[in-house]
Computed example of a mutant assay.
Amino acid sequence: MSYHSDPYDPKQVAYLSPESLAEAVDAARKAFAAAPDLDALNQIKHQHLGDKAPVSLARREIGALPPAAKSDAGKRVNAARQEVSAEYEARAEVLAAEAAQRVLREETVDVTLPVVRRRRGARHPINLMTDRIADLFVGMGYQVGEGPEVEPEWFNFDALNIAPDHPARTMMDTFYLAAAGRSDSGLVLRTHTSSVQIHTMLTQEPPIYAVSPGRVYRTDEVDATHSPVFHQTEGLVVDRGITMAHLKGTLEHFARTMFGPEVRIRLRPSYFPFTEPSAELDVWFAAHKDGPRWIEWGGCGMVNPRVLTACGIDPHVYSGFAFGMGVDRAVMLRHGVTDMRDMFDGDVRFPLALGTEE
């Protein structure tokens, strides 16, 4: 080992000779050039640029030289190390480019090849129908409203002019929620999305053009045409000069968009506490599988002045109409579904069978 106090001995500093440094550079060049890929190049890097590489050992021997020789030796070592580093960087750049080209060549996908791809599932027809209805009314200038599925009785009944002794408020039709230790919490699972209309009228000033799709609950037994959980879309318009003519025109456009341009509608007089006058909406299906017939689709009418008053809207200035349709019913009519239970069994083949994959 060399020490600063040792006299100069060429044998002790063999790595510092110009010949040795040239050989080190040449060996590194050949080794780097022989590396077939980046992994191999990185594995041999330490042999030529590491702590025990010839150029690194040569730098350590500079201390054994007399002061007059150190400067010249240091320049030679630095030049040799820079040359080795340059050789490494150049080879690494070439190998990286080759690797990139190889990836592009080996992983190329021919997008023109024919492919058969059939998804095992699809969006549920009820979601698709809900979005379709919302898009229709948004295109007509309506806004889409949402509200909670658990409502105080006031929103679900009182504000809609449904009296305390109305049959709809009994346990036969409504799910009541019991608070801890109480059975009279005053909360219900909403039986219609009309409660969203109340929220809308309380928070917005007329003119109001809104549609409110959502899930609702009633104590129905499960069968081919009934379910305790189903979906509705309700519409509300409150503005100056609104009449039944506006309601009929809106519903006619709605029905023809959903079921085809040949569809006709009719309004049959009916009764709802929250509309006056009220009507049942029927749709004429000329191409029904069981023959041409009228099929009931929903209810509608002019907003009862008492409902407007409950929401702080002057019925002498504004009038409005409201309507409500079952989304599940619309899917059944549009696609010929005969059993509502098919829509909730979770069979991924059901949407595909209806052709509702979009």
Rank of each mutant, 00 (worst) to 15 (best):
Q197D: 07
Y209N: 06
G214P: 00
E221Q: 15
R240E: 15
E262A: 15
V238Q: 00
R256F: 02
F230G: 05
F274V: 00
T233M: 09
P261G: 05
P206T: 08
F230M: 01
G186T: 11
S227L: 11
H253M: 15
L251M: 06
G260Y: 03
V188R: 06
V229G: 07
P228A: 01
V238F: 01
I242H: 04
S194V: 04
R256E: 10
R240M: 13
T225K: 15
S270A: 15
R266C: 10
P228Y: 02
R264V: 10
M244I: 12
P206I: 03
L247D: 02
G214N: 07
I208C: 00
G241F: 06
S212Y: 09
R218K: 06
L187S: 06
L267G: 10
V188F: 06
G249V: 01
P206Q: 11
R268V: 14
T219L: 07
V188A: 09
V216E: 11
L251P: 00
Y217F: 12
V222K: 11
S270H: 14
A245M: 09
P206A: 13
G241T: 04
I198A: 00
T219I: 12
A210Q: 02
V237N: 00
D220P: 13
G214C: 14
R256A: 07
P269K: 15
E234Y: 02
H231P: 00
P206L: 08
S227N: 13
I208K: 00
R268A: 06
L267T: 10
Y217A: 01
F272W: 04
S194K: 00
R256I: 04
I242K: 11
H253I: 13
P273G: 07
T200N: 04
L187Q: 12
P261S: 03
R215D: 08
P273F: 05
F259Q: 06
Q204A: 08
P273I: 04
D220L: 10
E252N: 11
E262R: 14
R268K: 15
V222M: 15
S227V: 09
T203G: 09
E262H: 15
V238T: 03
F254T: 04
R268D: 02
G260D: 03
Q204V: 02
K248R: 15
G214H: 04
Y217C: 10
V263E: 03
S212N: 14
M258L: 15
E252D: 11
R266W: 11
F274M: 01
T191H: 06
G260A: 10
E221C: 15
H226D: 01
R268F: 03
M244R: 14
D220K: 09
E262T: 14
Q232T: 03
A245Y: 08
F272H: 07
P206F: 08
A245R: 15
G214E: 12
L187M: 08
H226E: 02
M201W: 07
P228L: 01
P207F: 06
D223A: 12
G235I: 00
T191C: 10
M201G: 04
T250Q: 03
L189C: 06
L187I: 05
G249L: 08
R240H: 13
T225C: 09
K248A: 14
E221V: 13
Q197R: 01
Y209Q: 09
S195A: 14
H246C: 06
T225N: 09
L202Q: 09
G249T: 02
Q232N: 07
E205Q: 12
Q204S: 11
H226F: 09
A245E: 05
I198N: 02
H231L: 07
M258D: 03
S195V: 03
L187T: 01
S270Y: 11
F259S: 03
